[in-house]
Design a protein around this nucleic acid. Structure first.
Lengths: 253, 253
DNA sequence: TAGTGGTCTAGACCACAGC
DNA sequence: CTGTGGTCTAGACCACTAT
């Protein structure tokens, strides 16, 4: 039950109690909670109050609701680990782009859909690529799937001067992907930088990535530089935070 | 207004319209929206429906509500960039730990509160540190502030065999911090690894970091290795995602 | 004091899942 | 068909902010 005189909002009391029962092991991942109407009787509050409590825990990523079935303790998903080694030249030589290398490591069947288009660089892209805003860039928009489910969105942008006449402007870039084509054109990759952040997804991303409520997205912007330091490509990746962990390692100093 | 026959839930229609008006520039960050009661008249729906719409946009991090004042378009915070160079030995030689180096780069006044305790390693820590679960570890629990506001939580753990008799077991580790003391004891850092993820914060983290609704946290686990590959330390950091961006860079191949 | 968001109730109907 | 979560209304009172 709840204490209606404590001053603590009832839905917070209910949420706290459910959270405690879940972390205490009374409900384990995958379990169905009592229905909302049952919880109104258990706690002696209205249905809206129960729904607000459940809503808090959904926003925290603790619970997921399934229409017509019930409210469940969210099952723990499999974490896919991405290490920087996925960008090794050795992997490219073996005909694999970064995502195919991930797939091999993760043991899933990869597929992806690509759209190619051309646009004018906005201010952020221009800064990353060290070009002028408005300069033409080649844009490769990819939706990546593992065993059929979308797991990653990636938008790659290159100054068009580097892609004209290459397979980078085709949907299929051929073995080794974009980076292999760049190196064939004499643009040898010298350095990578990745900028990592996180935020809540847009509604578009929620549907594209089939995100459960309370799931943030990890946003990675990778910039690939030529050996002389000139930026060649930016790649904006959006990953569901509950399915990915990124790993970086480096020598001290 | 809304279309009550379209089948699309009213609160989603309201949320979509508000989102469009915000991205369209009708409301800019910091602006106050019309009150909930005004919006009920504008859209011709009940107050709960308006509140559900506002709730969606709050969960997305688009809006923030202030009790008694109104609902506002969330102002964009300053992004603090963390690069791996903060861990350079040069910075340590200049008497600065990683956080002080960040502060200098970011132009804020740093302060922090530290608690030291000892505990038995759990399974995850044991795996990272390559010790047995139950082995004693020294735990340094830090709350870091920039200009007085909490910006980062960090929990550092080291096998106690490396810290006994050193200032690492004191609240004040002295110039250069934990890593400097380790190196003085002959444990020279050879390599770092960072594992990066994101999730929604726990209620404790929400209050400790004063997080606005719809703000995920970035979770970084850093492992520092000795030159011979032996793990020396794990550091679990929790950062508000709206205030941080992490940067990593490395040479190709 | 007036206006704001925060909380809560009682009740209703709809859409979906599963027997 | 029953039970589930999803949506919505009308109305009420409380807590906070600003004037």
């Amino acid at each position: 039950m709840v204490d209606k005189t404590s001053g603590v909002p009832l839905h917070r009391q209910v949420a706290a109690d459910l959270r405690k029962r879940i972390t205490g092991g009374e409900f384990v991942p995958g379990d169905r909670l009592p229905s909302e109407r049952e919880l109104t009787e258990v706690y002696g509050v209205s249905r809206l109050t129960v729904r607000e409590a459940v809503g808090l825990l959904r926003a925290e990523g603790v619970l997921v609701a399934e229409h017509g079935r019930g409210v469940f303790v969210r099952p723990r998903g499999t974490i896919q680990r991405l290490a920087r080694s996925r960008l090794s030249r050795a992997a490219r030589a073996a005909d694999k782009g970064a995502f195919l290398a991930d797939a091999e490591a993760g043991g899933f069947t990869p597929s992806s859909t690509v759209q190619v288009r051309f646009e004018a660089a906005d201010e952020r892209i221009a800064r990353h690529l060290r070009i002028q805003p408005g300069d033409e860039v080649t844009v490769r928009d990819r939706v990546m799937r593992a065993d059929g489910v979308v797991v990653q969105l990636a938008v790659s942008r290159l100054p068009r001067v580097f892609t004209r006449g290459t397979a980078i402007e085709d949907v299929d870039t051929g073995p080794g992907g974009t980076y292999a084509r760049l190196e064939e054109s004499g643009h040898v990759i010298g350095r990578y930088a990745e900028h990592v952040g996180a935020r809540m997804p847009t509604p578009d991303e929620v549907s594209a990535l089939q995100l459960a409520e309370g799931t943030p997205v990890v946003v990675v912007t990778r910039v690939a530089y030529r050996e002389d330091g000139l930026p060649l490509e930016t790649n904006d990746m959006v990953l569901p935070a509950d399915r990915y962990e990124l790993s970086y390692e480096w020598e001290a100093e």
